Computed example of a mutant assay.
Amino acid sequence: MSARPALRGAALLVTALVVTGCGSGDDSGDDSATGTGGSASGSSEAFPVTISTAFGDVTVEEEPTRVVALGWSDAETALALGVEPVGASDWLAVGGDDGLGEWVEQGYEEAPELIETMEPSFEAIAALEPDLILDTRSAATEERHELLSEIAPTISQPEGVGPYQTTWQQQLEMVGQALGRTDEAEELAAEVEQAFADAAAAHPEFEGTEVAVGAYTSEGFGAYVSGDARVAFMEQLGFENKTEIEDLATENFFIPVSEEQLGLLDAELTVVFPIFVEASEFTGNPLWQALPSVQEGRAVVLDDLTVLNAFSSASAPGLLYALETTVPLFADALDG
């Protein structure tokens, strides 16, 4: 695929959540779904299976053959487990492509019907005649869940988890169970966990190091708090999100940072990326340049769109790519 001119889906997501004030949920990777069937992967023996969601238990009676994947990273997660959706939200779609992150190696044999991300057409979804809808990381409203459930069994986010706050572990577990691919899901989860463990072991300097993770949009700077996937990524490597940022956390996973507060982004390691703007719009700002972490080379600007998409994806395949590409940047910054 060609390089994308903008982080379309992710940028829309961030903007929508910051503006509407959606709450963050449980960030843990604890079990969030309980299967009642067997553990055979990709087989009818795994069904029926019942999965606990924020809106009650959902039972998938038979192995699904027509899956619509609506949640952020649901499509690439299903694909990683060997199932091609017939419909998928256009989170990262640009210029008619398939909406998959550039790190996804498998690709589709037959591209799915793309569904509008923020305002999906329920008529278009119904027309695909799905027997399963994956919506594990989305706007997470009961109304949305009920409307989708009228079409097909719908796997929404786990109980106690807010909009877009499903962790990659929870997503992988739920999608694996719903597809009858628990073995594949467990293998992929183990691969990702091992990749994080290997990266952390290779860089003991990460352990306990203070980090500030921020973004810059047309509205200005902001910072992420615990409960956000990007912070979880850093925490799994051993970093600790800056206490002063955590102290300002509300129900959002993102707090605005005025230019007068820009010192909040100064940390032992500062990681900032642009959304819908060029990085030069903030890297040339004298206030940014005056931050000690910037002056001392301890600031990393993620301006490669593929890397940034993967870092923000909160999906198992995306995280593997993000680990390969970002960890060396963090290590170099701390090394001075």
Rank of each mutant, 00 (worst) to 15 (best):
residue 68 V to W: 02
residue 254 F to I: 03
residue 289 Q to C: 05
residue 14 V to R: 02
residue 127 A to P: 08
residue 296 E to D: 15
residue 194 Q to L: 12
residue 283 T to M: 08
residue 318 G to L: 09
residue 308 L to Y: 03
residue 307 V to C: 03
residue 93 A to F: 02
residue 103 W to H: 12
residue 137 R to W: 03
residue 220 G to D: 04
residue 193 E to K: 14
residue 141 T to H: 07
residue 214 G to W: 14
residue 252 N to R: 15
residue 260 E to Q: 10
residue 110 E to M: 03
residue 242 K to P: 04
residue 313 S to C: 12
residue 102 E to D: 15
residue 148 L to F: 07
residue 320 L to Y: 06
residue 30 D to R: 14
residue 251 E to W: 04
residue 46 A to W: 09
residue 305 L to G: 05
residue 91 W to D: 01
residue 7 L to F: 01
residue 126 A to L: 11
residue 206 F to I: 14
residue 228 D to C: 06
residue 24 S to A: 11
residue 98 D to Y: 10
residue 4 R to P: 00
residue 106 Q to C: 01
residue 311 F to G: 00
residue 74 D to Y: 06
residue 50 T to Q: 06
residue 63 E to H: 07
residue 119 E to Y: 10
residue 106 Q to Y: 05
residue 290 A to E: 14
residue 152 A to E: 07
residue 200 A to G: 11
residue 294 V to K: 09
residue 332 D to Q: 14
residue 79 L to A: 10
residue 222 G to P: 01
residue 167 T to G: 06
residue 191 E to T: 15
residue 315 S to Y: 04
residue 13 L to C: 07
residue 307 V to Y: 09
residue 303 D to K: 08
residue 239 F to V: 03
residue 332 D to Y: 02
residue 3 A to N: 11
residue 191 E to L: 03
residue 137 R to F: 05
residue 109 E to R: 14
residue 76 E to R: 11
residue 54 A to T: 06
residue 280 S to V: 08
residue 31 D to L: 12
residue 197 A to N: 01
residue 96 G to W: 11
residue 37 G to F: 12
residue 301 V to A: 02
residue 9 G to W: 12
residue 75 A to E: 05
residue 1 M to C: 13
residue 314 A to H: 13
residue 269 L to G: 04
residue 105 E to M: 00
residue 144 R to M: 09
residue 216 Y to G: 00
residue 276 F to C: 10
residue 122 F to Y: 14
residue 108 Y to M: 04
residue 108 Y to A: 03
residue 175 V to K: 07
residue 198 D to L: 05
residue 124 A to C: 02
residue 96 G to S: 02
residue 335 D to K: 15
residue 285 N to D: 15
residue 21 G to T: 11
residue 231 V to N: 06
residue 121 S to H: 10
residue 27 D to R: 15
residue 51 I to H: 04
residue 131 D to K: 06
residue 251 E to P: 00
residue 234 M to C: 13
residue 116 E to W: 06
residue 130 P to Y: 02
residue 298 R to M: 03
residue 38 G to I: 01
residue 175 V to P: 01
residue 165 Q to N: 14
residue 294 V to W: 13
residue 241 N to I: 10
residue 310 A to L: 02
residue 12 L to H: 13
residue 315 S to T: 14
residue 275 I to H: 02
residue 94 V to Q: 04
residue 114 L to P: 05
residue 314 A to L: 01
residue 66 R to A: 15
residue 323 L to Q: 07
residue 5 P to E: 11
residue 198 D to T: 15
residue 220 G to V: 13
residue 185 A to M: 08
residue 120 P to D: 11
residue 290 A to H: 09
residue 319 L to Y: 13
residue 266 D to P: 02
residue 22 C to A: 14
residue 53 T to H: 07
residue 70 L to R: 04
residue 111 A to K: 13
